[in-house]
Design a protein around this nucleic acid. Structure first.
Length: 297
DNA sequence: TTCCAGGTCCGGC
DNA sequence: GCCGGACCTGGA
């Protein structure tokens, strides 16, 4: 239970103008982020740029209370309050299926999250489910992240690469990671030892960043694309997990069975344009939360 | 008990 | 390249 304590440092509410639609519920719980929780009351509690905070939206404004000072630009960047979402809505190539998803979740925004956190989070996600992913990530934070007081309770920041790389496999496994523990350790050491800088992935061309990620043990095409889309602002990355392949089969590629990564991405870019990845998140969320999409002939 | 879930790896064709 | 099985774990 969250309880307010008078000693808890909480900054004065920060108000950030929202230039278009914002659907916090869909944005925070559509499977792109794993550390947000509902409450207390109208708030959603989590981290922005590893600063503990809570957010809610009201009358075209996003209200943020944080554990320490947080810049409005950082919040705007995280939620794409800089016009990027409107740019996507304006320019993405639409079809009937995407139109339905956009109509229903027009305020669903692709977050700009930390690439290092996304790297680890999506390795954790493989062959798993959301509840378990959340539990494992929270466990990693508790074992290797810094504690911080917020909202009357202790919360743990996402661990730094060196801290995560120091955990032994038994500790990693105690968070429910299973066989993924080895992959997490390997990726953390890769970053901690300076052989991989997640921040650089955003500046590389998609193909180069994809190939670099695929070199990591435990990172396949799907995980690599998730890292690039959710953590590196590569909106042309098109993660194809079981849900995406499901709606591709049902909606777009009814004649071909289980196409490979390259063919799926080629189709997606041709069909939706350079924001195919952003479109993917809409279709993914719609297919998962509502049901089958309209068929395209 | 058995099966499967927001994949990846490996070995065999 | 394509296919099938194994892999930790927890919930149905």
């Amino acid at each position: 239970m969250l309880q307010r304590s008078p000693k808890t440092p909480v900054t004065a509410p920060l108000r950030v103008h929202v230039p278009g639609p914002l659907d916090l519920e869909s944005t925070l719980y559509s499977g792109q982020a794993f550390r947000w929780t509902r409450g207390p009351g109208p708030w959603h509690t989590g981290f922005i740029a590893n600063v503990p905070c809570r957010v809610r939206s009201q009358d075209g404004t996003l209200i943020v209370e944080a554990g320490r000072q947080i810049d409005a630009n950082v919040v705007a960047h995280y939620f794409r309050l800089d016009g990027a979402h409107e740019e996507f809505l304006r320019t993405v190539r639409r079809d009937e299926a995407l139109e339905a998803a956009l109509a229903r979740f027009v305020g669903l925004r692709l977050l700009r999250q930390d690439p290092w956190e996304m790297l680890i989070s999506f390795i954790v996600s493989q062959n798993s489910n959301e509840a378990k992913i959340r539990r494992s990530i929270e466990g990693l934070c508790r074992h290797a992240g810094e504690p911080t007081e917020f909202g009357g309770e202790t919360r743990w920041r996402f661990p730094k690469p060196t801290a995560l790389a120091r955990l032994d496999e038994a500790t990693l496994r105690s968070t429910g990671l299973g066989y993924r523990a080895r992959f997490i350790r390997g990726a953390a050491q890769e970053v901690a030892h300076g052989r991989l800088d997640p921040l650089l992935l955003a500046d590389m061309p998609y193909e180069e960043a994809f190939d670099r990620l695929m070199q990591l043990d435990g990172v396949g095409a799907k995980v690599a694309d998730c890292i690039l889309l959710y953590g590196c602002d590569h909106q042309d990355a098109f993660p194809s997990d079981v849900w995406v392949r499901r709606f591709l089969r049902e909606t777009y590629l009814r004649r071909s069975k289980d196409p490979n990564h390259l063919r799926i991405r080629e189709f997606a870019l041709r069909h939706f344009g350079p924001y195919a990845g952003y479109a993917q998140h809409y279709l993914f969320h719609y297919r998962r939360s509502v049901g089958a999409l309209a068929k395209t002939s």
